[in-house]
Design a protein around this nucleic acid. Structure first.
Length: 512
DNA sequence: TTCCGACAGTGGGGTCGCAAT
DNA sequence: ATTGCGACCCCACTATCGGAA
């Protein structure tokens, strides 16, 4: 199949708003694809490369390459070229990668270049990723969409499911069952603004501490242990403590879901930055483990012995978990039967925060484990802080925000009467607010380099954030975690904005 | 008819590893 | 030795479609 056909369909998918039409377009293309093209066509139209990330970013992709006049590239040629690209390493590799990308783009027409650049940068912007591709695949093969989705969640691979389906038909889906040793996409949580709201929504529930670490899925099959991240990367080699802990458990075959976190000598959780740095260390794991030891803390079990537990209610899964994992290696929790238990749940949250943790996750006791979904059955509750900050600049937006000032540079007052930048945010803005702030900020503009518009520091904005963290990038030595806009405060003058001094005083646990 | 669940998009900061300087 | 880039951890929020209620 020609790449130009994919580029054409991708363009049509991007141009239509209706999901049903997107699905139909993808289904039609999947039906057209020859068997040998399927392993490439499916991920491409889901906006992903089968090879994963290839080590090329905006630096290489930003260079302009003259387009070919005629469409001749086949998807298999492109795939072969990108496989080659992924193999390049060692000295001179950056130049070699740039050369290979240039050669590929040079053989592509303008439309094909647009599609390839989207794939390579991971931003196809066609309004269709895995979920829509799954629907299209189901439509193309006559399988039930729910069955296809489940197979993808349980295998973590749209590509594998697609190959089997298109090659063998709907019966092939039976093979994609939960298997110890094969990672499953984890269940995710929604947010709630308070424990009371969460408990009221869910009814009988467990309120569990939320640890600020790295999510892990641990598979043990006899003496073999594998540890996977949220995106199913294998990080077993970096976490010997987790392997050791899994081998100590009484069970012989299981899949556990939990968090890895580092505690200091006093038993307090270390900052996310410290835990993440440790988990990211590959070079000298033994040394890293000595300096920042980590512990697994589990909260769910997906399989035990030869039993698949996904579809059991959480209450029953937890009973299995409690048999398998001793209490110190499980997250702390309290049960709430209904609204009457809200005060106790609130005390549990306060206690959890006092112990240095992030917040709680409230989980319905009746809900199954919805692999790969952000189910409404899990609701996280974290305290929110707010600040009044001054807009120092704004960056021009991309995609649907093109032509709008989007990403705000936020400043707090300093002792000398100036402002120190604390970070940026683009979150929390409605279309109306985007339009308003674009017009308003342009009136305050003092400089526009085409990327960033600097403004007179006169506009005050109320910002919500989850906490403070250390920063080597910003002048105060700290930055806001997960900053988002709540509202503009035109009633406030910049002189009334919050100060760096007060911010630091409010977060004594963080020292710049 | 209205409501709400699921998705995609729009980017944020930090840290590590690797290649280039 | 330092710097820059890319990958991958953590993530919030809004708009939209389309099925559920």
């Amino acid at each position: 199949m020609l790449l130009s056909r994919l580029a054409e369909v991708s363009g049509e998918v991007a141009a239509t708003a209706a999901r049903s039409r997107k699905v139909a377009l993808l289904a039609e293309l999947f039906r057209e694809a020859e068997a040998e093209d399927v392993p490439v066509v499916i991920p491409y139209l889901a906006g992903r490369l089968p090879q994963g990330r290839l080590g090329v970013g905006w630096k290489v992709l930003g260079r302009h390459v003259p387009a070919a006049p005629e469409a001749t590239l086949t998807v298999r040629e492109v795939d072969a070229a990108l496989t080659e690209l992924g193999r390049v390493s060692g000295p001179g590799s950056q130049a070699e990668r740039a050369r290979l990308v240039g050669a590929l783009l040079g053989a592509a027409t303008e439309a094909e270049q647009r599609f390839l650049l989207g794939l390579l940068s991971g931003e196809v912007r066609q309004g269709a990723l895995d979920a829509v591709a799954v629907e299209g695949l189901a439509r193309a093969t006559g399988a039930a969409a729910g069955d296809v989705r489940r197979a993808v969640m349980l295998s973590g691979s749209l590509q594998a499911v697609a190959e089997a389906l298109l090659g063998e038909g709907p019966d092939a889906l039976d093979r994609f069952r939960l298997t110890v040793g094969r990672p499953v996409l984890p269940m995710l949580a929604h947010s709630a603004s308070s424990v009371a709201e969460a408990v009221q929504k869910l009814g009988a529930c467990a309120v569990e501490e939320k640890l600020d670490g790295i999510r892990v899925q641990v598979h043990r099959d006899g003496d073999t242990v594998r540890v996977h991240t949220r995106t199913l990367d294998d990080i077993t080699a970096r976490l010997p403590e987790v392997t050791a802990a899994a081998l100590e458990l009484s069970g012989d075959r299981f899949i556990l879901d939990g968090e890895v976190i580092s505690f200091d000598a006093a038993g307090r959780p270390r900052s996310f930055q410290e835990t993440a740095g440790r988990v990211g260390s590959r070079a000298d794991v033994a040394r890293a483990a000595e300096q920042v030891p980590v512990s697994p803390v589990f909260f769910d079990v997906l399989a035990a012995d030869d039993r698949e537990l996904l579809d059991l209610p959480f209450a029953e899964r937890h009973a299995h978990l409690a048999r398998l994992v001793p209490e110190p290696m499980r997250v702390r929790r309290t049960l709430a039967e209904g609204p009457g238990d809200i005060p106790a749940a609130q005390r549990f949250l306060a206690d959890t925060l006092a112990r240095g943790h992030e917040g709680v996750v409230v989980k319905s006791l009746a809900a199954p484990y919805s692999a790969g979904r952000r189910g409404a059955a899990w609701l996280k509750v974290k305290p929110v802080h707010t600040l009044d900050l001054v807009v120092l600049a704004a960056e021009w937006g991309h995609g649907r925000r093109t032509g709008r000032l989007s990403n705000l540079h936020l400043g707090a007052r300093t002792a000398d009467g100036g402002f120190a930048m604390l970070g940026k945010t683009f979150k929390g803005l409605t279309d109306a607010l985007l339009a308003w702030q674009t017009e308003r900020l342009l009136r305050l503009a003092v400089e526009d380099d085409g990327w960033t518009v600097r403004v007179r520091p006169e506009l005050v904005v109320e910002i919500a954030y989850d906490g403070l963290q250390r920063s080597s990038r910003y002048p105060a030595g700290v930055t806001l975690r997960f900053a988002r806009v709540l509202r503009y405060r035109e009633d406030k003058s910049p002189a009334e904005a919050d100060t760096v001094e007060a911010l630091l005083a409010a977060h004594p646990e963080v020292t710049p």
